[in-house]
Design a protein around this nucleic acid. Structure first.
Length: 210
DNA sequence: AAATTAATCAACCGCGGTACA
DNA sequence: ATGTACCGCGGTTGATTAATT
């Protein structure tokens, strides 16, 4: 048996939020604070499940959210954090004030992946692109024809196209291999020591349990 | 100008984990 | 010790908007 759905079948709205729903949610949280998501909808007079309310607040209505495009500095910080943390979007978001995990995840998938590819880096590993190859070595090998990499097909930009052309015309890798020890010489994140002060520690605190 | 394809991103879903009875 | 209600996370979807043909 699977678990029951988070929202009982009773009539709940889904999809985009209306201004009226937003106003109700904001008013309720102003009056009662965050939390109690399960019971909030009823208390606030919303025909939504608690999860939906939480998501709307955290990702869109919270007053401390930054709006607008990511800065170049934010881009670089996201890239560095991702190279260390992987897809731990909430941990990454905790290091970018005013940004949400969802926003960063979306931004990663739609922009930064492309940016890394255009630099000749694999967005997953942050290593120089290494294409599937019969010899199975870790050193970069020459790119195979595009049709062998459908995953890249929809990420093409002029920069990426340029990269492939340049890569094909060179006899040696254009991106030197980074040594593990030197990978982040300028980054001191104190990841082991501190958690961000502006948000409560979340799941990862479980790691501290004896 | 219309049709088609791609990009964006808000919102959803299922699951893992915690708190607490 | 065990069950379960709930929270938060990460992957994914799909509606809308933008770009391209």
């Amino acid at each position: 048996m699977g678990r029951s759905p988070c929202c009982e079948k009773s009539h709940t709205n889904k999809g985009a939020w209306t201004k009226e729903e937003d106003d109700r949610l904001i008013a309720h949280i102003r009056a009662h604070g965050e939390g109690g998501w399960r019971s909030l909808p009823k208390a606030a007079g919303l025909l939504r499940c608690g999860k939906s309310c939480r998501l709307r607040w955290i990702n869109y209505l919270r007053p401390d959210l930054k709006r607008g495009n990511f800065s170049e500095e934010e881009d670089e910080l996201i890239i560095k954090l991702h190279s260390i943390l992987g897809n731990k979007w909430s941990l990454i978001a905790a290091r970018l004030p005013g940004r949400t995990d969802n926003e960063i995840k979306n931004y990663w998938n739609s922009h930064i992946k492309r940016k890394l590819l255009s630099r000749g880096l694999d967005p997953g590993s942050h290593r120089p692109l290494c294409f599937p190859h019969h010899n199975n070595t870790t050193s970069p090998s020459r790119p195979a024809p595009d049709h062998e990499f459908p995953a890249f097909q929809n990420l093409k930009t002029p920069e990426i196209t340029d990269f492939f052309q340049q890569y094909r015309s060179e006899s040696s890798p254009i991106v030197p291999e980074a040594s593990d020890a030197e990978e982040h010489p300028d980054l001191n994140l104190n990841l082991c020591i501190s958690l961000p002060s502006n948000s409560p520690p979340r799941r990862e605190q479980s790691f501290q349990r004896p």
